[in-house]
Design a protein around this nucleic acid. Structure first.
Length: 864
DNA sequence: GTATTGCATGGCT
DNA sequence: TAGCCATGCAATA
């Protein structure tokens, strides 16, 4: 208690003078904000000066509304406490119920809380602040947390673990919410004319002590606040399940103490609550707030959303049985000991009363609770499978209220973090597949990860995912086609996918397509704009690492080399479909049009001529089509055409990016690794899928390549000699074999009759890899397939497992050259170690060197 | 033959 | 791995 020489109240607005001063209200934190202040005993209602310490200069938390918001004169309170004002209260001020405050709880910012504990608000004539604060100070950590209402962290609200947001699943993962979020909350109350709530009875009892009153308040769960405009309420279901108070009485048997699954947490919409409480204006809520401080909680009742459930096909079927979540049934419905159960009166939002049979079946030493006879009610609400039924309770009378929500009206993506899959028909209530779990399908933010995002985050996730899909959709014909062809992820059985994987099952066919989509997406990935990646090297491969941002989906382009030898991209205008040349490092949006061609203003209009000639376009498009197509190979006809047009020289030029000139590079040469830049020649990017093809360029003269070439020549000479000997011994058999229909059509390496390879010797054939893989087809347009392949093991050519790669061995044919050619095209990279290792051993290169070579394979210009 | 009931099964968490 | 629960299905009305 500080004494002062002044005899005037510290509050400048107070003109009282006194010799008997007391120190300012002691704060629970014990800080001295008002320690040296002097306050008279009178609370100056209309003054805010008392809030601001004129001694130390400390002011109330700016998040707090001015005091007048809390305690205007009675008529003014009703007027001032608009929804907007209320929201401020909900977010920062004294929130008289449990749920809304818990929205903002966060245990790691206790100090903030302490300064803004609602019971510290100076309510004149109300609760003894000191006493309450003492109680709170002495409360257990859990209680503190429970009562740690709102906190701000860097201007944002952090939501505590026990909170439930509009999607009903927040609180599993703390996410930041922008502060305005709290403005969305408003209470919904019902007027109770007939009875007095337990809360009000307790709170309004004049005999109750403040502590008891506080206890009553704190333990009272049956209050609802709903976010305005977000259509979802906050709920009275606490995560601990300890608020299972029915008619004001807790569950003595501890039922329902376990946490409800997020998908059952109610997301009752504002409209629903409003519908239920249509005759009770928001002003009642305001009145409730004020009444709380005035110890006048009479004539108020509450809606407590209990749980909700998405209707399964069975639920919505003719059977008329609604399977109730066990925990919900046990927590919120009357206890039943007999399977027959008991009739349960439920009122719908229209006020119509239904009677269902609440019963259970024994099931695996457990119970399966059902509501029977719900069909009329379901039909009355026009609900179908996939829609959601909600159960609420009117307090204090405990009347059950059943609501419904159409699937198409579900505001959140997730009920437990589900996401809407683009292309699904969410409006089809019979198809619950419209809702997906993010964790299962796309995103990593799902509840399935054991965490849950709040609704905003979910919405963001949805937006992101939509964008992602959209970008893929726009940028890739395959993706687009997939989305067109597969608008809905099918399920095997039920039309109701609800929330479980079972209901999200994807047919194998779809899985394949999704994989292809992913492959496509990989090809579309680009480094994010303005993001400078860091690089690290793994086994000689340089990787880009984007720590701040993931690669983005860009418009598919075809990389090439222009006439000046510079790398470029060819990109097609979304509108006019003309191909434009842009710099190789340009990051293009998924939708790109000529007007965005800032690099070539002459061709920044769709009316501008295309730079590519028709012939060039012919080369360009097959590559593009191939890239976009799900087909792994082009047809023989295409190959013939391509080879005929360009020949091996063209292939050679295409084979390695940068060695061609003026010709667009096949998309096959583009990076396949999403984190590598286009044109990257590291092993990851050079190596075709499944390990086929070459990792080394045909011009490579590294130890491995030169050794292999030498070894190959020796082997071929030896085998040719053997072959000639055999043929001399059995010329007739040889002739018969040559006429065999099994002889491959395109493996006549000696004849050289195909266009483009005429006159080539074997080495050239090998060099350019004209011969294709196991199916014996001619080379595709893939330049990579035209490169020499080190995946060869001449000494083990007949020992290889058919599973080594591509099943090529199944098609091995007589003739060492053919066999060799085939194998050198088909062996997987997994055998290269053995192959080259043996080779290098023969060549006197140690194993360690070999390992080094392999490690540096992707950049094997380095010395081995 | 149809509807209802009660239980069993199996996918999923 | 236990428990939940969607659904199938046989028994029954």
């Amino acid at each position: 208690m500080s004494s002062s020489t002044t005899k005037v109240c510290f509050n400048s607005n107070c003109k009282e003078a006194s010799d008997k001063w007391r120190r300012g209200w002691r704060r629970r934190t014990g800080d001295s904000a008002y320690e040296d202040g002097k306050f008279c005993e009178t609370f100056h209602l209309n003054s805010s000066g008392w809030r601001c310490c004129e001694s130390c200069g400390k002011t109330p938390n700016p998040a707090w509304p001015p005091p007048s918001h809390f305690l205007p004169s009675q008529p003014e309170r009703m007027k001032d406490l608009s929804v907007k004002t209320w929201s401020a209260i909900a977010g920062s001020g004294p929130v008289p119920w449990r749920q809304a405050p818990s929205l903002f709880s966060r245990p790691d910012t206790q100090s903030n809380v302490q300064s803004r504990m609602p019971f510290e608000i100076d309510v004149s004539g109300g609760i003894d602040r000191h006493h309450i604060c003492e109680r709170l100070s002495n409360a257990s950590p859990e209680m503190k947390q429970e009562r740690s209402y709102e906190r701000f962290v860097n201007g944002k609200l952090r939501l505590g673990p026990s909170e439930t947001l509009q999607n009903g699943n927040a609180g599993l993962d703390m996410k930041e919410q922008p502060y305005p979020f709290v403005n969305d909350f408003k209470p919904v109350f019902l007027k109770n004319d007939s009875s007095t709530s337990n809360l009000s009875a307790r709170a309004s009892s004049s005999k109750m002590t403040d502590d008891a009153q506080l206890s009553a308040i704190i333990s009272q769960p049956s209050v609802v606040s709903t976010p305005v405009g977000r259509q979802v309420s906050h709920i009275a279901v606490d995560s601990s399940g300890e608020s299972q108070i029915r008619n004001g009485k807790g569950r003595g048997d501890g039922r329902g103490r376990n946490q409800l699954l997020p998908r059952y947490r109610p997301q009752i919409t504002n409209e629903e609550l409003q519908q239920i409480s249509s005759e009770y204006p928001i002003a009642v809520a305001v009145f409730m707030i004020i009444s709380f401080f005035l110890n006048d909680l009479k004539k108020i009742s509450f809606i407590t959303p209990l749980f909700e459930k998405m209707l399964s096909a069975s639920d919505a079927g003719r059977i008329g049985r609604l399977v109730l979540p066990k925990k919900c049934a046990e927590a919120y419905f009357p206890p039943i000991s007999q399977p027959e159960g008991l009739p349960l009166k439920v009122q719908d939002v229209k006020g119509k009363e239904w009677v269902f049979q609440f019963r259970f079946w024994p099931n695996n030493n457990s119970r399966m609770y059902v509501l029977e006879g719900i069909t009329p009610c379901i039909q009355s609400m026009q609900l179908q499978a996939g829609d959601v039924v909600t159960f609420s309770r009117l307090e204090p009378e405990g009347k059950l209220v059943m609501g419904g929500r159409k699937a198409s009206a579900i505001p959140s993506l997730d009920q437990g973090d589900e996401v809407t899959v683009i292309g699904t028909d969410a409006s089809n209530p019979g198809d619950g597949s419209a809702r997906h779990k993010s964790g299962d399908v796309i995103s990593g933010n799902g509840q399935r990860k054991g965490k849950s995002s709040n609704n905003l985050m979910s919405q963001n996730a949805r937006v992101d995912q939509e964008n992602t899909y959209s970008e893929i959709d726009k940028s890739g014909s395959l993706a687009e086609k997939i989305l067109e062809d597969k608008p809905v992820i099918h399920t095997k059985k039920s039309s109701n996918l609800s929330v479980k994987n079972k209901r999200l099952r994807i047919d194998n066919e779809d899985v394949i397509e999704l994989k292809l989509t992913w492959r496509e997406a990989q090809g579309l990935m680009r480094p994010p704009a303005k993001i400078v990646p860091s690089f690290f090297v793994v086994e000689g491969c340089e990787f880009e690492e984007f720590e701040e941002a993931a690669p983005v989906i860009g418009r598919p382009t075809i990389f090439g080399i222009d006439h000046f030898g510079e790398k470029i991209q060819w990109v097609q205008c979304e509108d006019c479909f003309k191909w434009r040349k842009v710099p190789a490092d340009a990051l293009l949006p998924s939708r790109w049009i000529c007007s965005e061609n800032v690099w070539d203003l002459d061709r920044s209009l769709c009316s501008a001529d295309e730079e590519l000639t028709k012939e060039q376009l012919e080369h360009l498009l097959p590559a593009m089509n191939k890239d976009a197509s799900r087909k792994e190979d082009i047809t023989d006809q295409d190959a013939d055409l391509f080879v005929a047009l360009e020949g091996l020289d063209a292939l050679a030029n295409l084979a390695i990016q940068g060695e061609g000139e003026g010709l667009p590079i096949s998309s096959e040469s583009r990076t396949k690794h999403p984190r590598h830049k286009p044109g990257c020649t590291c092993i990851v990017c050079l190596q075709p899928p499944s390990g086929k093809g070459s990792k080394h360029s045909q011009s490579c003269d590294c130890v491995v390549c030169s050794s292999l070439k030498r070894r190959f020549r020796t082997l071929m000479e030896r085998r040719e000699k053997k072959q000639l000997e055999k043929e001399a011994d059995s010329s007739s058999q040889s002739l018969q074999w040559q006429q065999s229909p099994e002889k491959p059509q395109a493996v006549d390496t000696h004849a050289g009759t195909d266009a483009g390879i005429s006159g080539l010797n074997q080495e050239e054939v090998v060099k350019w890899g004209y011969l294709d893989e196991a199916n014996g087809r001619k080379s595709s347009t893939s330049p990579l397939k035209g490169q020499i392949d080190l995946n060869i093991q001449p000494d083990r050519e007949e020992e290889l497992s058919p599973s080594s790669d591509s099943g090529a061995m199944k098609h091995l044919l007589p003739g060492s050259a053919d066999r060799f050619f085939r194998q050198q095209r088909s062996f997987g990279s997994d055998v290269i170690g053995d192959l080259v290792g043996k080779q290098m051993q023969q060549d006197g290169i140690g194993g360690a060197n070999f390992i080094s070579c392999m490690a540096l394979d992707g950049s094997h210009q380095k010395t081995v």
